[in-house]
Amino acid sequence: MNLVVDTHTHTYASGHAYSTLVENARLAKHNGLKMFCTTDHAESMPGAPHYWFFSNQRVLPRFIDDVAVIRGVESNILNTQGEIDVHPSSYKSLDWVIASFHEPVFRPSDKNSHTKALINTIKSGNVDALGHLGNPNFDFDFEAVLRCAQQYNVAIEINNTTLKGNSRVGSVERCYEIAAMGKAFGVFFTTGSDAHFCQDVGNLSLVSELLDHVGVESHQVITHSTAQFLAFLALRGKDAISEYQDL
Rank of each mutant, 00 (worst) to 15 (best):
L3S: 01
V4A: 04
V5C: 14
V5T: 05
D6Y: 06
D6A: 09
T7F: 07
T7M: 12
H8Q: 07
T9A: 08
T11Y: 09
T11M: 12
S14E: 01
H16E: 04
S19I: 03
T20G: 04
A25E: 09
R26Y: 07
K29F: 09
N31G: 07
N31M: 11
G32K: 04
L33R: 08
T39S: 13
D40C: 06
A42K: 08
A42W: 03
S44K: 15
S44W: 02
M45H: 10
M45T: 14
M45I: 10
A48I: 04
P49L: 07
W52N: 11
F54Q: 04
N56G: 11
R58N: 13
L60C: 04
L60M: 14
F63E: 04
F63V: 01
A68R: 11
V69A: 06
R71E: 02
G72W: 14
V73W: 06
T80F: 03
T80A: 13
I84H: 08
V86S: 10
H87R: 09
P88F: 06
S89F: 13
S89V: 15
S90K: 10
V97S: 01
I98A: 09
I98N: 05
S100E: 07
S100P: 01
F101T: 02
H102N: 04
H102W: 04
E103L: 09
E103D: 15
V105P: 00
P108R: 12
P108K: 11
S109W: 08
N112Y: 07
N112K: 15
T115A: 05
K116P: 00
L130S: 05
L130D: 06
L130G: 12
L130V: 11
G131P: 02
G134D: 05
N135I: 06
P136V: 06
N137P: 03
F138H: 07
F138I: 04
D139C: 03
D139P: 04
F140N: 14
E143D: 15
E143Y: 10
L146E: 05
Y152C: 04
N153A: 07
N153C: 11
V154F: 05
V154Q: 03
A155I: 03
I156C: 09
I158T: 02
K164M: 08
G165Q: 10
G165R: 12
N166D: 14
S167H: 11
G170Y: 05
V172Q: 01
V172A: 02
R174W: 03
C175W: 01
C175G: 02
E177N: 11
E177G: 00
I178E: 02
A179L: 01
A179V: 14
G182N: 12
K183F: 09
A184H: 08
T190H: 00
T190C: 15
G192F: 05
S193R: 03
S193I: 00
Q199T: 05
G202N: 08
G202D: 10
L204N: 04
S205A: 12
S205W: 06
S205M: 03
S208W: 00
D212W: 02
D212H: 10
H213E: 06
H213P: 00
V214E: 06
V214M: 00
E217S: 06
E217F: 00
E217Q: 11
S218I: 03
I222G: 07
H224W: 00
H224Q: 11
S225T: 15
S225F: 09
T226D: 02
F229A: 03
A231G: 11
F232T: 11
A234E: 14
A234R: 10
K238H: 15
I241T: 09
I241N: 10
I241Y: 13
I241R: 13
S242V: 12
Y244N: 00
